[in-house]
């Protein structure tokens, strides 16, 4: 090991991971190539498209703009984890029902960003607030309308269930 290759220890979707990585490896490449978690996608590699959105220590980040070595000691969650735990199952169902995905390239990032908004909002967010929160996530297929519909429907359903 030298300063160009480092040992890291972190949790990914709750499981402990120890690995040796090149300093230059981005978090999303580490997840996809070393851990075979290919749900996080790589689009632009400069922070613009949002396809690589994952959670680090509870906050959404760009997986392409963090290095894997920076996640030493961190808790990383990917769409695989959010999916397996059932945390986003209602969002997934609503995306399917409302045709909020076509090719699906943007969907993991979109759902991760949408869930970030929903779990932080104390009330049902407006359509404008939903659009704003998802403004950093590109979708080249759907035209966004159906995505906003799906997120809004889930927000309302969750608020109803809380009453």
């Amino acid at each position: 090991m030298n300063d160009r290759t480092l040992d890291i220890s972190l949790t990914v979707n709750g499981a402990r991971v120890q690995d040796r990585v090149e300093a230059r490896k981005t978090l999303v490449d580490f997840l996809r190539e070393d851990l075979a978690l290919t749900g996080s996608h790589v689009g632009c590699e400069h922070g613009v498209c949002g396809a690589c959105t994952v959670r680090v220590n509870g906050e959404i980040v760009r997986g392409c703009l963090m290095l894997a070595v920076q996640c030493d000691g961190a808790a990383v969650e990917t769409i695989e984890g959010l999916s397996d735990s059932g945390e986003v199952s209602d969002l997934q169902a609503a995306f399917e029902q409302r045709n909020a995905l076509q090719c699906g390239y943007c969907t993991p990032g979109m759902i991760t960003a949408a869930q970030d908004l929903l779990r932080r909002s104390k009330k049902v967010p407006s359509r404008d607030e939903i659009r704003e929160h998802l403004s950093g996530n590109y979708c080249r297929c759907t035209g966004y309308h159906a995505i906003v519909d799906a997120v809004e429907a889930v927000a309302q359903a969750r608020a109803g269930a809380r009453k």
Partner: peptide, 11 residues
């Protein structure tokens, strides 16, 4: 693209 190799030091 991917970054060229570099050394990393967390201070």
């Amino acid at each position: 693209m991917k970054p060229a190799p570099f050394a990393y030091k967390k201070v």
